[in-house]
C-alpha cells in the first residue's frame, strides 16, 4: 500500500493531462499525434514515470476518440529481444475474431495493424510455434502491404487495418517466451486507460444531457430511473479505475499479467454498462449522428475487442480459476 516515492505528483499529472488534451485537439492529418508528442517532450515524461505517463496518454487519447500508434510503442517496449534499429515497426495484433495469435506458420496470417503500413518498414508478427512457445517474426512491411486493407465495421474511424493472406517470406523470427505475456499485459493496461478515457467523455455528455433536457417540467436527470442507471455506470467505471490503478502498482510483479487482464476486463465491462445506459438516456438523439455519443459507443467497443474483449477475458479468468490458479488480489 505504499505509493512509489518517485514519479509524477498529482499536480504534475493534472498539468500533463491538460497539455495532452490540448495536443489531441491540435492534431491534423499532416501533424499527427506522434509528431506533437515529440515536440511536447514526451520522452522525458515517459522516462520520469512510465506508468503514469502511459495511463495519462491513453486516457486522453480515449477522451479525444483519437487514434495513434502509441500502443505499438507500449507493446514493443516489452520485447527487448527484437534487435533495436531505427526502422519504424508496426505490431500485428491478433484479430479479435480469429485465433489468440496470428499463425503465419500455417500460412494463414490474420491480424490487425493500427494504421497504414506505408510509413513503416517492419511488421512485428507474434505467433505460436508448433511447440506452443511464442515467437515474433519481424518481416519487411513491403511484403505484407498489399494485404493491409482498411478495417471498417462498427467504428469507421479507428484507422485500423486488417492483414490477411499468406506471407512471402518468414522474415527474421525471434523466440520471446513469456515476454509476449508481458507485452500483452502492457497493451491491456494502456487499452483499459483508453477505454476509461472514452467513458469519461461519454459520461460528461450524458450527465450534461440529463441535467439540461426537460420533460414533464423537470430535468430527466431528476427521475430515479435515469439517476440509478447513471449511478450504476459510475460504479462500473469507478471499479474499473481502481482495478487499473492496482494493475499499475507493480506491473512487473508476479501478478502483473493477471491484474492487467482483470483491468482490461473491467474497463470493457464498464464501457458496456455505461454505453447501454448512455444511449437510452439520450433518447432518440443517442442513436443519431447529430450527437457525438455514437463515436464513444463505437470506439469503446472497438478498444474492448482488441487484445481480448471483456466477455472472452471473463471466460478465460473462469477457466484459469478452475485450472487451479490461486491468484488473489492482495492489498498492495
Amino acid at each position: 500500500m505504499n505509493s512509489p516515492a518517485t514519479g509524477l505528483d498529482a499536480d504534475s499529472r493534472k498539468e500533463i493531462a491538460a497539455s495532452l488534451r490540448q495536443l489531441f485537439e491540435q492534431r491534423t492529418e499532416s501533424h499527427d499525434v506522434a509528431t506533437l508528442l515529440a515536440e511536447f517532450g514526451w520522452a522525458d515524461v515517459l522516462a520520469e514515470d512510465p506508468c503514469a505517463a502511459i495511463n495519462l496518454l491513453f486516457h486522453e487519447q480515449g477522451r479525444a476518440v483519437a487514434g495513434s500508434r502509441a500502443l505499438d510503442d507500449v507493446v514493443l517496449a516489452q520485447l527487448p529481444h527484437i534487435e533495436a534499429t531505427a526502422r519504424r515497426r508496426a505490431v500485428v495484433y491478433p484479430h479479435p475474431l480469429g485465433a489468440v495469435l496470428s499463425r503465419p506458420r500455417d500460412g494463414a496470417l490474420r491480424g490487425i495493424v493500427l494504421g497504414s503500413l506505408d510509413d513503416v518498414e517492419d511488421a512485428v508478427i507474434p505467433h505460436t510455434r508448433p511447440d506452443g512457445t511464442v515467437a515474433v517474426a519481424v518481416t519487411p512491411a513491403a511484403e505484407l502491404a498489399t494485404a493491409a486493407v482498411p478495417l471498417g465495421g462498427f467504428d469507421q474511424h479507428t484507422g485500423w487495418r486488417t492483414i490477411s493472406g499468406s506471407r512471402t517470406t518468414d522474415g527474421h523470427t525471434v523466440s520471446i517466451g513469456p515476454a509476449w505475456d508481458l507485452a500483452v499485459a502492457a497493451g491491456r493496461r494502456a487499452l483499459a486507460a483508453e477505454i476509461l478515457g472514452v467513458c469519461d467523455a461519454a459520461r460528461e455528455l450524458v450527465v450534461a444531457h440529463a441535467s439540461a433536457r426537460m420533460q414533464f417540467g423537470r430535468p430527466i436527470g431528476s427521475f430515479q430511473a435515469v439517476r440509478h442507471r447513471l449511478a450504476e455506470a459510475e460504479v462500473a467505471m469507478a471499479g474499473a479505475r481502481s482495478v487499473l490503478g492496482a494493475a499499475w502498482q507493480d506491473p512487473a510483479g508476479p501478478s502483473g499479467v493477471w491484474t492487467a487482464m482483470i483491468a482490461k476486463l473491467r474497463a470493457g465491462h464498464a464501457q458496456a454498462v455505461l454505453m447501454r445506459h448512455a444511449v437510452q438516456t439520450l433518447g432518440a438523439m443517442g442513436l443519431t449522428r447529430e450527437s457525438p455519443l455514437h463515436r464513444y459507443v463505437e470506439r469503446a467497443a472497438a478498444l474492448d475487442a482488441l487484445l481480448g474483449g471483456h466477455r472472452a477475458l471473463t471466460e478465460a479468468v473462469g477457466s484459469a480459476l478452475l485450472g487451479g490458479t490461486e491468484a488473489d488480489f492482495e492489498l498492495p
Binding site: 500500500m1 469507478a238 471499479g239 474499473a240 481502481s242 482495478v243 490503478g245 492496482a246 482483470i262 476486463l265 473491467r266 465491462h269 466477455r311 477475458l313 471473463t314 471466460e315 478465460a316 479468468v317 473462469g318 477457466s319 480459476l321 478452475l322 488480489f329 492489498l331 498492495p332
Partner: peptide, 20 residues
C-alpha cells in the same frame, strides 16, 4: 465458467476499490 470469472472479477474490483 463465465459466471465464475465474473464473480471473481467482482470481488477483485471490490478489493481494489476498498484498498484505496
Amino acid at each position: 465458467v463465465r459466471r465464475l470469472g465474473e464473480c471473481y472479477a467482482d470481488i477483485v474490483t471490490l478489493k481494489a476499490r476498498s484498498a484505496e
